[in-house]
Write a protein that binds this DNA or RNA. Sequence first.
DNA 1: CCAATTGTTATTTA
DNA 2: ATAAATAACAATTG
Length: 274
Amino acid sequence: MPELAEVEFFRKRWGAGHGAKVLAVRLHEGKKVFRGTSTALLKKKLTGAMLLGSETAAKQMLFRFSGGAWLGIHLGMSGALRVEAPDYVAAKHDHFILVQRQRQLVFNDPRMFGGVLFATGPKPPAWWTRIAPAILSKTFTVEAVANFLKRRARAPLKAVLLMQERFPGIGNWMADEVLWRAAIHPKRLAGSLKPAEVRTLHRECRNLCRIALDTIAGQGRYLPPNLNHHIPPSWLFWHRWENGGLCPRTKKPLVRAEVGGRTTCWSPARQKLR
DNA sequence: CCAATTGTTATTTA
DNA sequence: ATAAATAACAATTG
């Protein structure tokens, strides 16, 4: 499920544990989510440590602990973070749990495409700092997008939008939503866009990220109980998977097909191949 | 049994 | 050599 705004939503959930100590670490040893990570070191360093704070970048989260410990979590395709009661008993796919006095912070991931990273030191580790700067940062300029599209000239736009090195945090549904809002066909080749279309694409990337973060991750104190709860029906989001779905803007039928290796939904009346 | 799934990476192909 | 396409990963659901 998780793309940019959903990842932020889940990070805020674990925010309930900020300022509290970790009494114990429970994990499913040997599971794929720990590939490349020393669970022994992780348990040793996190047990007794205080969860100090956290941040989100692209589809990843970084949790900072006392003693110079850094925990990275990627939710993959099916990961989620939850908060459970202190007496909660881990279910089958609850691969990683931080036990605190008042709650348990649970990482659940049935398909295990996600992962848990760990590092120690005074500064955030390289696997965190090398994540591309956010779409909502100053560095995400029209020129940067134009240059990237030029280098990926022969790839369909849908595939290009999924490339994390330039569009960090964008996933399948957000890519479709951006192209739909920009009224650009997902099969258009990246090199074929006119300057005005590049500007539109750039603008709608930023717009969607901003609106999705507001809508899904919530503002400040408030968190919706269900992360999709407040997505309005005017978005493509709700219609992209329904058979016989209609475009919320044109009221004409939507189409689904594989583009760039992923199932893609678009509104032919609005997004022309030309 | 077959096909599907909101992600990433290694391998193969062009 | 570079970039695009494909396969693989794992579990579950329809």
